[in-house]
Design a protein around this nucleic acid. Structure first.
Lengths: 194, 194
DNA sequence: GTAGCTTGTTGAGCGTTGCTCAGCAAGCCG
DNA sequence: CGGCTTGCTGAGCAACGCTCAACAAGCTAC
């Protein structure tokens, strides 16, 4: 090898740091690349490490991009969570407002996230499914409604409706943001029968 | 090589036949494998041909599974199309009924199709998008409504709603099929304002 | 029949990518 | 300094997408 073995910035990190860095890189790459198409080479290159090290932290490529997806889901989840102080009625509207804001702000990243989640891989789909189920719980709770099967299904399908509509709206707004939010609330209210 | 160069059934097919056969194999594999994960090796093996021949018909793996997705979309499209004779009012309900029947019959295949369509690959997503747009056209036409931007978006989002609800219903029916169809029709009617 | 053309078809092989494994070396303890 | 833990690497294998030069099945023309 040459005289200077390492350029300069080569530092040894703790396991936690490294993991976090790798997931972070995945999140940065998400908007431009479908999760499953992230290449280990690319990620390792960006982190300035060897491919092998990545496999030290994530046994499988799938493990890696599942972790990235989970991280994205966690970010969204924390942003959406109803603020405990708010009156029950405004909790749902608040969630919807924050969701619309989120999609509007992180358009591409969020679309990429949803795409990856909806796409083929069952593991990734599972991550998204979990979040959806928790969202249904929270929503039914905020509405003060019992959660029989039918109602759960309605709320879930309403999420699908909202996702699609908000995505379209972000691309080509056919109404004001307030009108959009009001419409979504109204559809939900009617669906779960109030 | 050995004395008997070819086992027996080795026949030379016309280009059209071969293409059709390969797409057919893709359709058979769809329910068990995400489209993008179809391996050329596996498909070629099933067809009893070499990998190279597949690349003769489809320049790229993407070209191949896009063709498979397109074939799946065509099947669904033809099944859903409103029968021209029926009165305008029953056309929409008829489409919904056929859709529910389709999902109920080809559960896994259809889910796999939707998954692949929603997933990362823009080409595949495009195939699905096209069908959706055409469905919106047909639906608005059958309802006799003008198609301004807002209404198109509502109908598209309603499709997303219906897809999700019907999929859940197929997995765990919380109501009769007729009730489901009636609900979907009612939601659509209310959304596009009748 | 056989020469010749078209075209369906193949095998060898290359580059990339996911993944393994044996071992190096950075930092800490005595 | 010796020894230990553990973050980290390089070489290399197998699988897969894709290329390319050439073979051969089936048809037509002589």
């Amino acid at each position: 090898m040459t005289a200077a073995p390492f350029p300069s910035g080569r530092t040894r990190r703790t396991a936690g740091d490294r993991r976090a860095q790798l997931v972070e890189i995945g999140l940065e790459l998400l908007p431009t690349t479908p999760v499953q198409e992230l290449t280990i080479d690319e990620v390792a290159r960006r982190a300035g490490i060897s491919r092998s090290l990545l496999f030290h932290y994530f046994a499988t490529k799938r493990d890696y991009y599942t972790a990235v997806t989970q991280a994205a889901a966690d970010l969204l989840w924390e942003h959406l969570l109803p603020r405990p102080g708010a009156p029950a009625d405004e909790q749902v509207r608040g969630m919807i407002e924050r969701y619309v804001g989120w999609v509007d702000t992180y358009r591409e990243s969020h679309l990429a996230f949803v795409r990856g989640a909806a796409g083929g891989d069952p593991w990734v789909a599972g991550v998204y499914e979990d979040m959806r189920e928790r969202l249904v719980d929270v929503t039914l709770g905020a509405l003060g409604l019992p959660d029989d099967t039918a109602r759960r299904q309605f709320v879930r399908a309403w999420f699908a409706f909202s996702e699609d509509l908000v995505n379209q709206w972000a691309r080509e707004p056919a109404m004001s943001r307030d009108e959009l939010v009001t419409l979504l609330v109204a559809v939900l209210d009617r669906l779960v029968g109030r």
